[in-house]
Structures are given as structure tokens and as C-alpha cells.
Design a protein around this nucleic acid. Sequence first.
DNA 1: CGGGTGCTTGAGCTGTATCAACGTCTGTGG
DNA 2: CCACAGACGTTGATACAGCTCAAGCACCCG
Lengths: 244, 244
Amino acid sequence: MQRIMSGDPDALARKLKGFLPTPIEKALLAEFSGGKRRVGAREELDNEKSANVAYILHSGWACVYKLLPDGNRQIIDFRLPGDFIGLVGLLLRKPAFHLETMTDVVISEVNMARLMATIDKSHMLVEGLLWCLSRDTAIMGDHIVNLGRRPALERTVHLLLELGHRLGQVGLGNPNSYECPLTQKDLAEALGITNVHLNRVLRALRDDDLLTFNGHTVTLHNPQLLARISGFDPSILFSRTDER
Amino acid sequence: MQRIMSGDPDALARKLKGFLPTPIEKALLAEFSGGKRRVGAREELDNEKSANVAYILHSGWACVYKLLPDGNRQIIDFRLPGDFIGLVGLLLRKPAFHLETMTDVVISEVNMARLMATIDKSHMLVEGLLWCLSRDTAIMGDHIVNLGRRPALERTVHLLLELGHRLGQVGLGNPNSYECPLTQKDLAEALGITNVHLNRVLRALRDDDLLTFNGHTVTLHNPQLLARISGFDPSILFSRTDER
DNA sequence: CGGGTGCTTGAGCTGTATCAACGTCTGTGG
DNA sequence: CCACAGACGTTGATACAGCTCAAGCACCCG
């Protein structure tokens, strides 16, 4: 499976299809997504520049994180194909979070002028952009609930279900199995637990035949039960026009 | 101190002043904020409607939360005068979070048509709205770091510093002391700990002469030390045009 | 073949939860 | 004006989830 970094040829358009009623919007978005380039795995997306530029992630995985004085890091969100990266920093005009690729990726750049020029041309694209921002915020709300109120096992399951649904939405993987380039350390940094403890959690899940995470592939053996255990609700991930 | 619920007569305009270069924008925003009404303390902001309407909070406190199957709740963010409430639900067109007032409040309603009509008239207001959304997202990022990586004491301090700065920004309270209508239970629900444990944390802070929280007033006795302890950085709260 | 990176397991410790009781304040009705 | 109820805050005792430190294992790549 060397296709981890491949993605929908136009994942963002797919995600926003409800906001692209006419060929005009489609063309605007296509132009907006132009200028693609590759970046290698495990590279910082330039932090100095990030106050002036954001990215559209076309393929591959990235993450948004913060560093603590003691060197620990908290991953705030993983970014998947079709997601914006660093929009918050661009709109605040100061770097808000650190950004790093997890795999080789294909991205294109967005600056403020280009963003405003594009959304200026279409009401629907303004709404699409606002929808993207809001969805990211809703996802972060879920992460807050996850960290604040769920024990490690439920927390782990919840995040892995979320990632599966988000990937499915852009045509990568299916609900029960998907490619996942994360190490246990990465996952633990997102879950607010240690990699040692995550390892034990994963073993428990494997022993109970609920879920396996082998380093490249996540397989859900009993999605309904897992959803119930973790209280996962995919509805906020989808726009009202998505088929489900 | 009966003035907990009072606020800057126009907290939102104050927050967005960098985005209001001409009287035209000021007038648009003023019109946009019209139709104020009161709502009592500890009331749910109608959840059914929240897919179609958001609010501007003019005075008082509110909170955004999620409920878990076991009845526990996680408070995701407190909303202070000048903040939007429920924007995410409006833009996603489905209720994303529960909303509740903590005190008597004054709010005005915003619907999608009104929002789009207003931002249609001014580039700067689009940017202001995007800035508000991004700032809320940045705050939630801080909460994720707080919950994921900081022990209870640092976590508590961090949140109380954040609230102080946000209140100061709209003219309520000063950096070292502010009115706070929260119960220990409320705070604990935001911090992802139990009220019993929060109580012990608060006593430790009081015993060490760092901070007091008496149920109505938060007093920071050593703000610099507290900021260092908790790793608090206020910079993302402010727009580039704010005086600091 | 060797070294690195990530995974796995164990032993002991600690921060936070749970459960339970008691104290304190405030508003209300007799 | 007092008595009471209810909400909120405080404290103690005990349990356990998750952490730390440490060692060993397995795979991959040069």
C-alpha cells in the first residue's frame, strides 16, 4: 500500500460540492486550488510565513499542533486531503499553530488577497469557506470533549472513527478500514496520553477484537459497537448536501 | 457587585475596531447588532432553532458545551460580551453544540440571510467575521492543549488568565481582578476535572497566595508568575490593531 | 550485519476520581 | 425574625487510570 499519499484528485471540490451549484463556482474553486507543489514527509510548513499564507492540502496527511515549554507537544488536529491548513493563522494574521506534514503531501498556497478576491466573486464560495472553518471548529469541539471527558480507550476509538469518516468523505478508505500513516507516538500526542499507555489501549482493543492498528492500517472489526462505546456521532462532519 | 451582567455598550464593535475603518462599516455593524433582547440566567439558548440562528452576546456570560450519554457535560468555551454564540451551528446549518446562559444576558439574533447581506456590503466586515471565527478556533486550540497536556493546577490558572484577558479586551475588569459568575462546578466542567478536585486546586492556589476565586471575583495576586506557571500567551486573543 | 526507530511489556508511583460527610450561605415562608 | 431547605463549597479516605522509568524486542534500511 504505497498509496497513502494519494487522494481524490480534487478532494476540496468534493467536500464542497454542495456549495458549487454552477460551473462558475467550480471554475473559481479550481483556479483557487491551482499552483500545486510537493512537500516531503515530516516537514514543518514554514512557521514564519504562516501569518501570510495558508494551504490547501490536496493529498497526504498533516497535523496542527502546539509545543509546550517542556518539549511535549499536543496535536490539535490532523489534516486530511481536502482540508485547509493554517487558515486560522492567515485570518488572524499571526501564526496560531505549528504545522507539520505527516507524509509526502501535495499542497497549494492561499494568501489573503487571493482568498478575498475569490470569495468576492461568489456568495456560495463565501459560504463554503465559512462552512470549512466551522466544520474544523466543530471537529475541535469534539476533540475537547474527547480530552476532557472520555477515558483513554473511548478517546482512542473516537478519534480513529473520526479519521475514518473524514477519509471516507474524500474518497479514501471505507468506513471499516483505512490507511493511516501515524505512529503510536503521533496518535498519543493527539490523544493527550503517553505512547506507552496508548500501546496498552491498542492491545486491549485488539484482544477484544474491536479494532486493529498495525502502523499502516486501521481496521474496525465492529464499527457499530465502537461508535457506541465512544459516543461517536459523524453528523457534524457532513454538510447538509452530502449523501450519507 | 451587581454589575456582572453589564458590559461595554458595544463590545463587539470594540473587539472589531480594527475592521471598522469608516463610518459606513460602523453603521453596518451597528445595524447588524440591532434588535437586542434579554434572556435570564441558566437558560438554554433554543437548541432546535440554533441551526437557523446565531446570537451576538452584548452583555453577560454564556457557555458552549456538549453532553455525554452518562449525563456529564464538557464546557467547550465560555462566551463573553462581544462574542458570537452559535455561529458554528448557523454556518453548518445544524446544531453543533448546546448553548446556555450563565447570567442574565442581552443578545441579538443573526440569521444567515442577514449575515450574508451585511458582509456583502463590506470587505472589512467579511474579514472581521472571519477573524472572529478564527479567534474562537484559536481559543479552542488553547483549550485542547490545556486539556491534553497540562495538570489540573496549570490548567485552571491558564483558563482563568484567558478569561481575564478576554474580559479586559471588552472593557470588563482589569488584568488582575475580574467578576466571574461561574460556580466551581461550571469551571470544573470546562477544565475536564471534578468539582471536588478543582476545589483542592483552588485551595492550593489560595494557600500559595497566587490566586483567589471566591465565587464572584477572581483575583490574581501574581500575574507574571501565574502566566509562567501555566504557559499562558495572550497574543492570539488580540487582533493586530489592538493596543496592548 | 549493525544501528536506529518504533513497538511491547513490566514494576512502581502519582494525580485525579469516587464516595461520603459536613459546613456555610442565601433566600423563603411561617 | 427565625427556621428551614437547597445549593454550593470544603475536607477526608480510598481506589484506580494513566504516568514514569527501564528494559527488551522487531523490523527496516543502509
